[in-house]
Structures are given as C-alpha cells and as structure tokens.
C-alpha cells in the first residue's frame, strides 16, 4: 500500500480531492450525484481527454507541445474540405483523413525537434504560429457550417431514461475517448516502445547508451499527439456541428494544465493515463458543480484557476512532507544490509 501510494502519489491525491469535492457538491445540489450528470461531464470532457492523453505521451518522452490545439483546427478544416472533394465520405474515411493529417502535423514538430535540434517549446510555439497564421490567412476566419450529414448526426451507443426523467447517453465522443485512452495506456505501459519512451524522457543519455533510437522516440511521441489531435478535432467538429477556425485557440494551455495536474511531469519520465483523465475530469467536475450551484459562468474560470493554482502548489510540496506516515526513515549511513 505504501509502495503504491509512493509510486502514484498524484493519482491518489487527485482521487481523494475529487471524492471530497464530489461529496461537497452532492450535498450542495441534488442534481450533481446523478448518473445522467456524470455522463454529461464525460460528454463535455471527451475532446479534452483525447488531447490530454496525446499530450501525455509527448510529456513522458521529455518534450512539450503547444501547437496541438491549433493543429486540430487545421485538421478539422482540411478534413472537411477533403471529405467534400471525395463527395461526402463516411466515419471510416473521416477518421482516416483526420488521423493522417494530424499525424503529418505531429511529424512536422518531430522533424523540427529531432532533425533541426530546436528545443520542443521553441519549435512548437513556432508551429503554433505557423499553423494558426496560415489557417486564418487561407480561411479568412470564415467558419464552415455545411458539414456532411453523418458528421453532425448525433451517434448514441446507449441511452436510457432514468426514474427522474433525465437521460443517460453514451455518445460517440465518449466511446472514441475511451478507445483513445485504452490505446494510449496500451502503448505506454504494455509495449516495449512505451518503456523506451519513459526511459528516454527519464534519462535521455542513459537511453542513448542503451542504443534506443532517439529519432524514432521523437516521431512516435509527436506523431501520437498529432494523431490524437486529429481525432479530437474531428470529435469537436462532430460535437459542435460546425468548424470554426479559432474555436480551439487557447485550448492547449488548459489541456496542459489539466495534464500536469494529473501527474505528468514537465521534463519527462512520469505520467499515467488515469492521472491525465482525472486531471481533466477534476476541472470539468468543478465547472459542472459550480454550474449546478447556480454560480455565474463568468466566475467559473476564476475558481477553476484558483483550484489549479492551489493544487499545483500543494502537489509541489511533497506528499511525504505533508503526511509524515509516508516519510522514509533514511538512516544516516544507509548501507545496504
């Protein structure tokens, strides 16, 4: 148990905070602790969670990416145009095109970081400007409302009316989000590639001495985020039923905050899918709860910002200092016995 807590401090802390928060909110409003509200929260968070698990892979391998949200906007626009060219298309084609474009944009970042040795924050701030500038230049900021029918039709996998008249709905974005989480979890914790990504993020020089292909690590991590960004872009277009070129602008920093809140470390080597999901949900639950309590929407961001600020401050002060029970007794001359 102590070992588990030591290895998953952030996740455990987040679960505890979320339980306390949820308990408080369910006392404050009777609507909060219902199944349909839980599914609402999931629906709202789906796109951000897909972004977050993609970003997680880049953070684990020691990089950072600022460009993924505007890359998703580029994907939306290009994918819808491409689908128009092929005469409408369908879901399969939609995922294929969006995924491929996203992957390509991710590879652009990997190329800059690996081939040209530009550190990732500088490279992705540059591509952030390039992607967004070109998108706004060529689209002149005009939105697309005329999407293919299949893309804007709600897809519900499961629905049920509850006793209180509310509906429980399992929609496509949630299902896609679950698949993305599953795939990312499999990649980072079950494949040899995943172990290499962690190793590279943890100790790049050590990984190099083990003959790990550093170039491949860059292309895989940024490519994976690109792929996730492409899928998230498609899901966001589906959810919003329109493509607005600057709709996702600014989303990158919110997702980054949530991901790091979930225990991913800037600098690499650490982070988990479950932490990532908890980080995003924590923000969504707060907003949802405030909404149900009738707090002005203008106050949401302020309160969410304050909560993230407190959480990050607390998580930087180490858990074993706050809870002496977990502190290690380290003998002065700690020889192995």
């Amino acid at each position: 148990m102590r070992r588990f807590v030591l290895a998953h401090t952030t996740e455990v802390a987040l679960i505890v905070v979320m339980l306390v928060l949820s308990a408080g909110l369910s006392l404050a409003t009777d609507r909060f602790l219902t199944l349909s509200n839980a599914f609402d929260v999931l629906n709202v968070s789906a796109v951000n969670i897909i972004f977050a698990v993609g970003l997680l892979v880049v953070l684990i391998s020691g990089g950072i990416d600022i460009s993924f949200a505007v890359a998703a906007s580029v994907v939306q626009y290009l994918a819808v145009l491409a689908l128009g060219v092929v005469g409408g298309g369908n879901w399969a084609l939609g995922f294929l095109i969006a995924g491929a474009i996203g992957l390509g944009l991710g590879f652009v970042n990997a190329f800059l970081v690996y081939r040209l040795s530009i550190i990732s924050i500088v490279a992705t701030i540059s591509t952030f400007n390039i992607f967004f500038g070109l998108l706004m230049f060529f689209t002149k900021g005009v939105s697309i409302y005329n999407l293919p029918d299949w893309l804007t039709t709600r897809v519900v996998f499961y629905e049920r009316e509850m006793a209180d008249g509310s509906w429980v709905e399992l929609t496509l974005p949630v299902v896609v989000m679950l698949i993305c989480c599953g795939a990312t979890w499999f990649l980072i914790s079950r494949t040899t590639t995943g172990r290499k990504l962690y190793a590279f993020g943890d100790n790049p020089e050590g990984a190099r001495r083990f003959g790990i292909n550093i170039g491949a690590m860059h292309y895989i991590s940024f490519g994976w985020l690109g792929l996730m960004a492409g899928i998230a872009g498609l899901m966001q277009a589906h959810y919003a039923e329109e493509v607005v070129p600057n709709a996702l602008y600014g989303r990158e920093l919110d997702v980054l905050a949530a991901t790091v809140l979930g225990g991913a470390r800037l600098g690499g080597g650490k982070g988990s899918v479950i932490g990532c999901v908890l980080g995003v949900l924590m923000v969504s639950i707060t907003q949802n709860g405030l909404n149900l309590m009738g707090v002005s929407p203008f106050a949401f961001k302020m309160i969410v910002g304050a909560i993230i600020l407190v959480a990050i401050t607390l998580s930087s002060a180490r858990l074993d200092k706050l809870l002496p029970a977990f502190a290690r007794a380290r003998p002065r001359t700690g020889g192995p016995r």
Partner: peptide, 18 residues
C-alpha cells in the same frame, strides 16, 4: 514551492483571466 514556473504562471493566467 519550487513548482515549475510554467505551471504556476499557467494557473495564474487562468485565474487572472477568470
């Protein structure tokens, strides 16, 4: 707190914007 400046200023940004 020795928290990473990206995190502190990012949450400060979200807070101030809000």
């Amino acid at each position: 707190t020795r928290a990473h400046p990206i995190l502190v200023t990012l949450s400060m940004m979200i807070f101030l914007r809000g």
